[in-house]
Each structure stands twice: as structure tokens, then as C-alpha cells.
Design a binder for these strands. Structure first.
Lengths: 193, 193
DNA sequence: ATATAAATTTTCTTTTGAAGAAAAAAAATA
DNA sequence: TATTTTTTTTCTTCAAAAGAAAATTTATAT
């Protein structure tokens, strides 16, 4: 996907699309960007790479940042529109060194450069684990029970229905406060930070 | 943020950071990318813009796509590391034309070009609403109760603990099957599609 | 259907800045 | 302190971007 031919064509198609959204002719974009009509044509037709300064001049009147511009390059969306999973179909996975931690994968999905993983975590009475870190963000919703969540040097007391959202690089671990099990919905937003 | 000086410096800093993650010296990246050490130095120091072909050559051994590369340009991260919300602190919001639908905002957060909104939705006995559409994806977890979820021309029957994840552009609406309330955790991933 | 105008593409030429080689400087190691 | 390694800077070359102008295509008017 970093193939030069693909990228030069993609850049051109994307600029043409963005110009189309504004309803501008080449001449209009040329006026606003100070890039010649001929050059814009060659770029849009994938004949040449713009230099960065030229690209920035083009994107400015289009009101698009580089992150916006490149964010959907290489993406293929063949998502059927929905994923439906029954409670009993969640697949159990147990992580190593995590006594009393029962993970069940609800679903995984990619979303705009972020990897989404949703799991249910059941903590038994004697659940015990060392702190861990992950690349990305994490959201915890306490479905049932009562826990303490250790996050770096802080500890949060969660009751049923409470939420915690945090940076996964902070060392973290939950602890069950009850003699019965506690159940958490855990959502990982895995991404480079 | 599309200022040339900013961008040339950002590109350089980003490449240096990525090279650092791999623990490579300039000479090592030069060997793998076929770009000269001198050129890499000038790029990393923000002295010159690479051309796109050169940038692609550099990113290939670093195993980074253009969307990954540019996705955090311009972002400011002043997230404190966590957001903790108690169940009783969720703010109730009621949407118009949604009789029997009680929404409570759990949290909102931006994440890599995706706007994250987490809510609890309580459907009363007579809850009724027209179908809606949203820009982005939606995840539903049934905390309590029994519902039917109409999604475009399909209907899903959800029991407690079941999940549904779908493209928000599909017209959708839930319906409570019980005489008592049903409660859903709803997560919106709002983004342009 | 034809002529004209508008828009875009292609060709030719110039300009410019990227890119590498080599020298110089800085940093690391012995 | 000396040597080696790594990085930066300077100098030079040249490749490709960039614009002007010509050619072509598309749209519009008659």
C-alpha cells in the first residue's frame, strides 16, 4: 500500500474528490492555491507527485489537514454493516498469569487506524494478577459486583454501573472486592501512542 | 497546522521517533530504505522535505503507512491519563421525539479522528421512536432486559449480555419487549464515513 | 450538426530543490 | 587523550516538479 504508483494515483484521486466536494473547476482551485492549472491536472491524473509545499498549498483552500487527507488511504471497507453476537457465543480466552480472570471476546474490529477489542472479564473471588500495560486506551464498565482498579499510583473504587476510561500505558490491574464474582465489560482501543 | 515550516519539522521529528522505536542508527535505516545517510539527516533535522517516493522508501522498513504516519499530526494530547465516572454522576439527556428513551452520558472523548460517545439508554415500557441514522459506528451491549433492534430491513433479538455492532448509516431503532425497563450501554464511534 | 467557448490535458522548457558524495563536526568508546 | 562511530553540513549534480503554451476534450449555443 506504500507502493509509489498506488500512492501517486491515490493522492490525485483524493484531491479531485475534495475539489469536487467544493464544486470547483481546476481554474478555481488554481487561483486559490497558487498552483498552476496544468500542475493540478497532472497531479489529479496521477502523473506526478506534488512536493509537500505544493500539496500544502492545495490542501489549504480545501480546508484539509494532512491527517485528514491521508486517513483513509489504504482502507478497505467490506464490513457487512453489523456484527451481532449472543452472550453464549462469546469465546472464552484465558490470559496467562491471570488466576481468576476469565476473558470472553465479544468482538474485534478495526476502525480508522484503531483496533477495537471488546471483552467481558469475569473476576472470581481470589482473582490476582500483576499490573500490565497496553498500547492504546481502555474503557471499563462494571456490569456486576464491586472492584478496585489500580491505575499507576491511583486506586479507583468502582460499583456496578461505574465507568473508567484510561491510557493503557499506565500500569493497571483490577481487584475483586467481593466473595462472589465481579463482571466487567472491557473495551480496548489499541493503537500506537 | 499546514504551515510548511511546521510540517517539515514534524515529518523529521516523526521519522526520528520511528527510527528510535526500532533502535536503528541512521546508517541502518539508510541501508534498509536505500536513502542516503546525509539525506536522512537533513530530513530528520527538518532541513528539507522528502519527496513522496523517498518518504515511502523510508516508511517501508519502518512498517508504517501514510495514514499511520500522518494521523497524529496536529494533535494535542492533554488527556490526564484517565476519566472516572460514577454511575450516579452520569448526566441525563433526553433526545427529542424519543418517548420512553432515557439517555445518560457516560463519557465523551476524541480518539484518533474518531469521536467516542458512551451512553446508557434506559427504555421504559412504552418506549417508541422513529428510526435514525448517524455518522459512524455504534456498539450496543444489553445490560438488562430484552429488546428487539431494528436495523435497516433486519431485526435482531437481544437478551441480557448480547452485543450488536453496526454501521450507523443503516436506519436503526430499538424496541423494548418487556413491561419493565431495559437498559443498554451504547457506544458511538462518530466519524466521517 | 456545426461553431464557439470553456475546461482540461499534454508537451516543451525552465527552474528548483532533493539527493548523494565527500568533508567536517560531534558524540561515543576505548 | 586518541580513535572510532555517528551525524551534520557543504558542494555539486541532476531528476522531477512546475509553469507556459499548445493541443485536445467537453460543454454550450445556434
Amino acid at each position: 500500500m506504500n507502493d509509489g504508483k498506488y500512492v501517486v494515483a491515490w493522492i490525485g484521486a483524493k484531491i479531485r474528490e475534495l475539489r469536487g466536494l467544493k464544486g470547483w473547476k481546476l481554474g478555481e482551485l488554481s487561483e486559490k492555491s497558487k498552483v498552476s492549472i496544468a500542475m493540478l491536472s497532472k497531479i489529479e491524473n496521477g502523473r506526478v507527485f506534488p512536493t509537500f509545499p505544493t500539496l500544502l498549498h492545495i490542501l489549504k483552500p480545501l480546508d484539509v489537514d494532512l491527517n485528514d487527507f491521508f486517513e483513509d488511504i489504504g482502507q478497505s471497507q467490506d464490513f457487512p454493516g453489523y456484527i451481532f453476537n449472543k452472550r453464549e457465543d462469546y469465546l472464552e480466552t484465558t490470559k496467562e498469569d491471570a488466576v481468576g480472570f476469565k476473558y470472553e471476546t465479544v468482538l474485534t474490529q478495526n476502525l480508522k487506524g484503531v483496533s477495537l477489542e471488546i471483552s467481558m472479564l469475569t473476576l472470581s473471588k481470589n482473582a490476582k494478577r500483576e499490573t500490565v500495560t497496553t498500547d492504546g486506551y481502555e474503557y471499563i464498565f462494571l456490569l456486576k459486583g464491586d472492584i478496585e482498579y489500580q491505575l499507576d499510583d491511583k486506586t479507583f473504587h468502582l460499583k456496578e454501573g461505574d465507568s473508567l476510561y484510561f491510557d493503557g500505558r499506565l500500569p493497571h490491574v483490577p481487584k475483586n472486592n467481593l466473595d462472589t464474582e465481579s463482571i466487567l465489560l472491557v473495551i480496548y482501543f489499541i493503537t500506537e501512542l
